[in-house]
Computed example of a mutant assay.
Amino acid sequence: MSAGREQGGTGDLEAVLKEAGLRITRQRRVILAILAGGGDHPDALALFRRASRQDPSISLSTVYRTMKVLEERGAIQRHTFEGGPARFEPADGVHHDHLIDLETGKVIEFRSERIERLQEEIAAELGYEIVSHRLELYGRRRGED
């Protein structure tokens, strides 16, 4: 699983959709369950593929519409790593950063108190307070020598 991220259930995500005026259909419940329980960063097409295995009546447009509303309401975060497709994760967890494997596309979540302190120190030295930030590292596995 992720570095310090707590996986929530679908209840909070359902509430966000209801507040936005969307019905909580069986298809949307499947999408929300996959998003809340995945522990990864799927793109819309991956969500669609997983969801359609559970319910073939799910359309790609339902996935896109659902993700758009959840993002607009701050319930999920959208990441676009190195120009790839937008990937999603619930916004309900502890802050973490990402390391993206350039060979496989795998997204590895991590948290470093040392990095967090250094960012705060740098901002303070420059006269700023950090309001938000993202750190994305891109790498390849080192060869075994």
Rank of each mutant, 00 (worst) to 15 (best):
A3D: 08
E6A: 09
L13E: 04
L17H: 09
L17K: 10
K18W: 11
G21T: 04
I24L: 12
R26V: 10
V30N: 05
V30C: 03
I34L: 11
A36F: 05
G37F: 15
G38M: 03
G39I: 07
H41M: 09
P42S: 00
D43Q: 04
L45N: 09
Q54A: 04
Q54N: 04
D55W: 15
D55I: 11
S61P: 04
S61K: 11
S61L: 09
V63S: 01
M67V: 14
K68T: 14
L70Q: 04
L70N: 03
Q77W: 13
T80R: 12
T80K: 10
T80L: 04
P85H: 14
A86T: 03
R87T: 05
E89V: 05
A91P: 03
D92S: 11
G93A: 10
G93W: 01
V94Y: 12
H96Q: 00
H98M: 04
H98Y: 12
D101V: 09
T104Q: 03
T104P: 05
K106F: 11
E109L: 11
E109A: 14
F110D: 00
R111E: 00
R114T: 10
R117W: 14
E120Q: 13
E121P: 01
E129M: 07
S132T: 14
S132C: 08
H133D: 00
E144S: 14
E144T: 12
D145Y: 15
